[in-house]
C-alpha cells in the first residue's frame, strides 16, 4: 500500500515534466537537428571536409544575389514598417472611440490577419495589373490614358511599390492588433484625468497615450522586424526574383540551383539576424518596460 502511495506521488511530482517533455523534445529535435545539419551543409563539401566555398560564393560570386537581397530586404522593411506603425496607431486610436458599428469595423480591420502573403500578393496583383481594377478605374475617370505598368523587370521601382502596398495592406493588421491590445489596457480614466486637468488632444497623445503605448509599439516593432527578414510569398508573387530578398534567394539556391550549402547559409543568416534582434529587444526594452510600467 505504502509503495503504491509513494509511486503515485512520484508520478505527481514528475507529471508536469512528463507532460512537457514530448513537446519540448519535438521542438528541440526539429530545430536543433536542422540547425546542426545546416551548419554542416554550409561549411563542408561533399566529402565532409571543412570549406568556406559556400561563404565565398554567397559573398563574392557574380551569380550570387546576396548583397542585393540583403539591401532589398532592408529597404522593404525600412519603408513598410514605419507606414504600418503609423497606420496601426491611427486605426487603434480610431477604434478607441465609441461609435455605432465599432465591433464591425474591428472585425473588418483584422480580416487580413488570416490572409497569407501569397494570397495578399495575388489580391494586389488583381488591383494593379494592366487590366486590373485601378488601371481601368483611372482610365475610365480620364486620369490616365494608358495603363500604369507595375510588373516586369523594367518596372522594378513599381514592383517595389506594389510589394509595399500589398504588405502594408496585409500585415498592418498584425501591428494593429498588438497596438490596439496595448491601448485597450490603458484604463480610460488615465486619459480622462488628463482631459479634466485641461489637456487638449495633442497633449493627451503626447504625454499620456504615446508613453503608455511604448511597450506595445516596441513589441510590434520587434515582431514586424523579425517577419521582415522572412518576407517571401508576396515578393515571389509580385516580383519573382526581380526584387531579391533573403528568403527568396534561399529558396532559389535550394530548389533551382541545388546549392544546398549556400541555401543552408542563407537559412543560418536569417536565423542569426532574428536571434540578434530578439536579444537586443529583450536587453533594451523588456527590462525597462518591466521597471517602469509594471502596473
Amino acid at each position: 500500500m505504502t509503495s503504491n502511495k509513494q509511486g503515485y506521488s512520484l508520478v505527481e511530482r514528475y507529471l508536469p515534466y512528463l507532460l512537457i517533455a514530448p513537446a519540448l523534445g519535438y521542438l528541440l529535435f526539429f530545430i536543433g537537428y536542422p540547425l546542426t545539419q545546416g551548419v554542416l551543409l554550409a561549411f563542408t563539401d561533399q566529402n565532409g571536409h571543412f570549406t568556406l566555398q559556400h561563404v565565398y560564393y554567397l559573398l563574392y560570386s557574380p551569380s550570387s544575389n546576396f548583397w542585393p537581397a540583403l539591401e532589398d530586404t532592408l529597404a522593404l522593411a525600412a519603408v513598410i514598417i514605419p507606414i504600418q506603425i503609423m497606420l496601426a496607431l491611427g486605426f487603434s486610436l480610431m477604434l478607441s472611440a465609441n461609435f455605432k458599428g465599432k465591433d464591425m469595423a474591428l472585425y473588418i480591420l483584422i480580416i487580413p490577419l488570416t490572409i497569407s502573403d501569397v494570397a495578399g500578393g495575388l489580391i494586389w496583383y488583381s488591383l494593379l495589373t494592366a487590366n486590373g481594377f485601378f488601371n481601368k478605374l483611372f482610365m475610365a475617370l480620364g486620369i490616365i490614358n494608358q495603363p500604369i505598368q507595375f510588373f516586369g523587370y523594367q518596372f522594378r521601382p513599381m514592383e517595389f511599390i506594389a510589394i509595399v502596398l500589398a504588405e502594408v495592406w496585409r500585415a498592418t493588421a498584425l501591428v494593429f492588433v498588438i497596438i490596439f491590445a496595448g491601448l485597450q489596457m490603458i484604463s480610460r480614466e488615465y486619459i480622462e484625468a488628463a482631459e479634466v486637468f485641461g489637456a487638449g488632444t495633442w497633449t493627451k497623445l503626447r504625454h499620456i497615450i504615446f508613453p503608455m503605448l511604448k511597450p506595445s509599439v516596441q513589441t510590434a516593432l520587434l515582431i514586424r522586424t523579425l517577419f521582415a527578414f522572412q518576407v517571401f510569398g508576396v515578393v515571389m508573387v509580385l516580383a519573382g526574383r526581380d526584387i531579391p530578398v533573403l528568403a527568396g534567394e534561399a529558396y532559389y539556391e535550394q530548389t533551382i540551383l541545388y546549392h544546398y550549402g549556400v541555401a543552408a547559409l542563407y537559412a543560418l543568416i536569417i536565423a542569426a539576424i532574428s536571434v540578434v534582434i530578439g536579444y537586443i529587444y529583450i536587453k533594451m526594452f523588456k527590462a525597462q518596460y518591466l521597471k517602469e510600467v509594471a502596473m
Binding site: 512537457i20 519540448l24 521542438l27 526539429f30 530545430i31 537537428y33 536542422p34 540547425l35 545539419q37 545546416g38 551543409l41 520587434l222 515582431i223 523579425l226 527578414f229 522572412q230 517571401f232 528568403a247 534561399a250 535550394q254 544546398y260 541555401a263 543552408a264 542563407y266 537559412a267 543560418l268 536569417i270 536565423a271 532574428s274 536571434v275 530578439g278
Partner: peptide, 24 residues
Amino acid sequence: SLKLLIIGLRMFPMLVIAIPLVTL
C-alpha cells in the same frame, strides 16, 4: 525558464529549418 524558452522559440524564424530538413 521553460516558458521563456517556448516564448523565445515562437519568435524563431521556423522557415529556416526547411532547407536542412530536406537532407534528413
